[in-house]
Design a protein around this nucleic acid. Sequence first.
DNA 1: TCATCATTTGGTTATTATGCCAAATGTGCA
DNA 2: TGCACATTTGGCATAATAACCAAATGATGA
Lengths: 107, 107
Amino acid sequence: MDKKRKALLNAKAEVLKALSHPTRLYMVEELARGEKCVCKFNEQIDADFSTISKHLSVLKQAGIVRDEKRGKRVFYTLEVPCVLGFMGCVETVLKSRIEAQTKIMKQ
Amino acid sequence: MDKKRKALLNAKAEVLKALSHPTRLYMVEELARGEKCVCKFNEQIDADFSTISKHLSVLKQAGIVRDEKRGKRVFYTLEVPCVLGFMGCVETVLKSRIEAQTKIMKQ
DNA sequence: TCATCATTTGGTTATTATGCCAAATGTGCA
DNA sequence: TGCACATTTGGCATAATAACCAAATGATGA
């Protein structure tokens, strides 16, 4: 495998890894409906401030969201809305998993 | 957040996590071009047999691939081709990341 | 300037993931 | 049956992640 492909695979994997946490996925889904300040997430998510802040920072590092400070607050925006398109397919995976399970149980 | 949504988020995150490793991403991309036996991956990927086998098993657990034993060999197939659709978007993320970097460097 | 609010950063610990080696399993063939 | 090949499983060391608490930063308004 050439270096270029390896580098690209690493970069893609990094983006996917950023999305592969339930809390971060929740954040992305919520941000799809519009920008949100960290304080809102603090209300909605049952975890320490610092934990929430770190999750947002992972998404930001990955290039999925953007942040903007306005006054005391920080607002996050979904920078790449197409990630939502993923979810349709992910759900397809889930469905096919359920079907496979059903098959096994019928045996 | 209700239990149902939480469970769905967990399940989705699990699928994404399975995809978020360069070696596994490579496997998925290769399988998109048709089924492949483990032996082929052993030739192409510079890692121990056991490591490769475990990566394939992660993809299988997640419901992304399917395996089929034929003779001595095991063949893997991409069960949910739509995952490739992800990649277009992931590349968009990468591009927007590069743009952001460029912006920073121009400052 | 000082206190306060919102958020991030640093540090620690527990959990999980990765990758290798060695051993086990399963299949076909002599 | 017994050997050789292909793959998986178990075990272990190391690395990466996640969550919490405490402390630091940055902005506002008294």
